[in-house]
Design a protein around this nucleic acid. Structure first.
Length: 506
RNA sequence: CGGGGUGUAGCGCAGCCUGGCUAGCGCACCUGCUUUGGGAGCAGGGGGUCGUGGGUUCAAAUCCCUCCACCCCGACCA
C-alpha cells in the first residue's frame, strides 16, 4: 500500500463510483470475477455475509409458515412455453442445455454429442417447474395454502455483468405459494414484502421504500409486482427485493386446480417472491466509505477483531493470552439478541498492515492490545463507522461493546435515511424534473451526478415511459404508503391521485 | 448485442507512437541486519508464454489481422 494515499480505496467514491465499488469488493475480499464469463467466485468473507442473510431470512420465512424444498436446475423447454408473457420476459437471457455427452474428437478436443430430445433451460426462475409440481400436489382446498421456499442458484445470461449486482449466475431464494382466494394470495404478497423490508432495514441498515411497480416494470406474467427500493450513495436506486401477485395466470397455464368447499373446481391464486446476492451489492454501496467496506454489526460475519501487538516472543505470549481471555469474555456477550462474534488476528504481519486489512473488510470494532494494555488491563478500541477510538479498561470495553454495536447499527441506518431524504424531492414542474436528472459534471471525465429520487404525480400510460427513457430515468415504484392526493401528471397533465418515485437505477 | 478503452510478475503501472542489448518501476513476496503502540528502514534476492492465435520482418511487448477476457457508455434486464 502506498503510504501517501489518504484513503485505503482508490479511486474514491467522488472520483469514480463504479470503480470504487469494484475496488471495495477486491480490498474487502468479498468476491472475484471467475474464469467463466459473467460469473463470480464468492470468497469466505463475502460468503459469510450471505450466510448471515440466509440464516436470518430463512428463520423469518419459517416463522411466517413457509417450508423449504428443492426443485431441479433444469427446466424442460416445453414448460416455459406454457405462459406466453412470462417466456417473452426472459427468453433472451436463457442458457439452454442441448447435449448430454462429450466425445473426444480427432484433435483431442471434446465435442458435444448425444443431442437431447428436448432442450433443457437452466432455470432463470422456477415458476414453471414449481407450478408443475404444485399442480400434482394440490387437489382440494384442504391442500391450500401451499407455502414453499427454495434456496437456489439461477442463471440469466447477462451481457453486462457487475459483481453481486448483475451476474450470469447468482444465488437467491424464491418463495412460491398457492392460495384458495385472491385476497389470501394478495395478503401473502404484502406480507413477504414486509418481511423483506423489515430484514433490509433492521439487518442491513438500509432504508427502503415499499411500493408497487408500474405496468412497464412488472414481472412478466404477474398481475402486480411489489418492490422495495433503496438509494445507493451515488443516489441511484436499487431494487432490493420483489414480491409478485401472480393472480391465476400461472395456475391457468399449469393447471393448478383444486376443489373448493362447494365441490367446484377452481384455479389457485399464486405468489412468488425473492431476494438475491444482489443484497450484498446493496450493502456495499449503501454504507461503505473511501477506506473500504463498512458492515452493519447485525450482518457482519464477525463484529470484533482483536489485534495483538508485541515486539518479541515473551510479549507475544502474554499479549496473546490476554487477547484470548478477552475473546472468551466477548463470546459471552450479545447485542439485540445476537451473539457477538470475535476473532484474534495473530498472523505475523506488521501492525499497521493488519489494522488496514480489517478496516478495508469493514469489521465493526477493532481492538488493539499491546504489552502496556496488558499491564494496565486496558484496550485500544476503534469503531469502523465513525473512526472514533478510545483507550479504556477491559471491563469498561466489555460493558460498552453491545451498546456500541447497537448504536452503529442504528447510526448506519440513520445516516442512510438522512442521505436519501436529502436527495429526494417533490416535483410539480417538468423542466425542473429534467434538470434534476441532468448530469452536473459533463465537462470532466468524472461520472455523472444526478439528483436522486424524484416524486411526482404520474399517469401510468406507455407515452410516459417513452419520455422517461430519454432521460434514462425509470419509475421505481408507486409507494404503498403515499397519501392519495389529487394532482396533475407531471408528464401528461392528466388528473391523477397516483404519485411515483423516479430515479436512475441499477 | 452496438460504440469506446484496456490486457506487460500477486497488485498497480511505464515501455508501444518512431521495431533492435539479458523487458523495467512501485507495492507485495523471500533472506539478513536494524526498527517497533502501528500502512517501517537498509542491503541482497526470487518471480514474466508481454491476453490468444496467425502474419509482416534479419529482428515484434512494439506494426497488421483473428479470437478471448475485463472496464466504461448504450440497448436489455423476472
Amino acid at each position: 500500500m502506498n503510504t501517501k494515499t489518504k484513503t485505503a480505496i482508490s479511486p474514491t467514491r467522488a472520483e469514480n463510483y463504479p470503480l470504487w465499488y469494484q475496488e471495495v469488493i477486491k480490498a474487502a475480499e468479498l468476491a472475484e470475477v471467475s474464469p467463466v464469463r459473467g460469473c463470480m467466485v464468492i470468497k469466505p468473507w463475502g460468503w459469510g455475509i450471505w450466510e448471515n442473510m440466509q440464516r436470518v431470512l430463512d428463520k423469518m420465512f419459517k416463522d411466517t409458515g413457509h417450508e423449504n424444498a428443492y426443485f431441479p436446475l433444469f427446466i424442460p423447454k416445453s414448460f416455459l412455453e406454457k405462459e406466453a408473457e412470462h417466456v417473452e420476459g426472459f427468453a433472451k437471457e436463457c442458457a439452454v442445455v442441448t447435449h448430454h455427452r462429450l466425445e473426444q474428437g480427432p484433435d483431442g478436443k471434446l465435442i458435444p454429442a448425444g443431442p437431447l430430445e428436448e432442450p433443457l433451460v437452466v432455470r432463470p426462475t422456477s415458476e414453471t417447474i414449481i407450478g408443475a409440481m404444485f399442480a400434482k400436489w394440490i387437489q382440494s382446498y384442504r391442500d391450500l395454502p401451499l407455502k414453499i421456499n427454495q434456496w437456489a442458484n439461477v442463471v440469466r445470461w447477462e451481457l453486462r455483468p457487475r459483481l453481486f449486482l448483475r451476474t450470469a449466475e447468482f444465488l437467491w431464494q424464491e418463495g412460491h405459494t398457492a392460495h384458495a382466494t385472491a385476497e389470501e394470495a394478495w395478503e401473502e404478497t404484502r406480507l413477504m414484502l414486509d418481511v423483506y423490508a423489515q430484514f433490509v432495514e433492521e439487518y442491513l441498515a438500509i432504508p427502503v421504500i415499499k411500493g408497487e411497480k408500474s405496468a412497464g416494470e412488472r414481472f412478466p406474467g404477474a398481475d402486480a409486482t411489489l418492490t422495495i427500493e433503496a438509494m445507493m450513495q451515488d443516489r441511484k436506486a436499487l431494487q432490493a427485493g420483489t414480491s409478485h401477485f401472480l393472480g391465476q395466470n400461472f395456475s391457468r397455464a399449469q393447471e393448478i386446480k383444486f376443489q373448493d368447499q362447494t365441490g367446484h373446481e377452481a384455479f389457485a391464486w399464486t405468489t412468488s417472491w425473492g431476494v438475491s446476492t444482489r443484497l450484498v451489492g446493496a450493502l456495499i454501496m449503501a454504507h461503505s466509505d473511501d477506506d473500504g467496506l463498512v458492515l452493519p454489526p447485525r450482518i457482519a460475519p464477525k463484529q470484533v477483531v482483536i489485534l495483538p501487538i508485541y515486539r518479541n516472543d515473551a510479549e507475544r505470549t502474554t499479549v496473546l493470552e490476554h487477547c484470548q481471555r478477552l475473546q472468551t469474555s466477548i463470546s459471552a456477550l450479545s447485542f439485540s439478541g445476537i451473539p457477538i462474534q470475535s476473532q484474534v488476528d495473530d498472523r505475523d504481519l506488521r501492525g499497521g498492515e493488519k489494522k488496514w486489512y480489517h478496516v478495508k473488510r469493514g469489521v465493526p470494532v477493532r481492538v488493539e492490545i499491546g504489552p502496556r494494555d496488558v499491564a494496565a488491563g486496558s484496550v485500544f478500541a476503534a469503531r469502523r463507522d465513525t473512526g472514533q477510538a478510545v483507550n479504556i479498561s477491559c471491563a469498561e470495553f466489555l460493558a460498552v461493546l453491545p451498546q456500541w454495536l447497537d448504536s452503529m447499527q442504528q447510526g448506519l441506518f440513520d445516516r442512510a435515511l438522512a442521505f436519501r431524504r436529502q436527495h429526494t424531492r417533490d416535483f410539480h414542474d417538468l423542466a425542473e424534473f429534467k434538470d434534476f436528472f441532468t448530469p452536473r459534471r459533463q465537462e470532466t471525465e468524472e461520472p455523472e451526478i444526478h439528483g436522486g429520487f424524484a416524486i411526482a404525480h404520474f399517469a401510468d400510460i406507455p407515452e410516459v415511459a417513452e419520455l422517461l427513457k430519454e432521460l434514462k430515468v425509470t419509475v421505481r415504484c408507486l409507494p404503498l404508503d403515499a397519501e392519495r392526493t389529487e394532482g396533475r401528471c407531471l408528464f401528461t397533465g392528466k388528473q391523477t391521485d397516483t404519485r411515483a418515485v423516479f430515479a436512475k437505477a441499477y
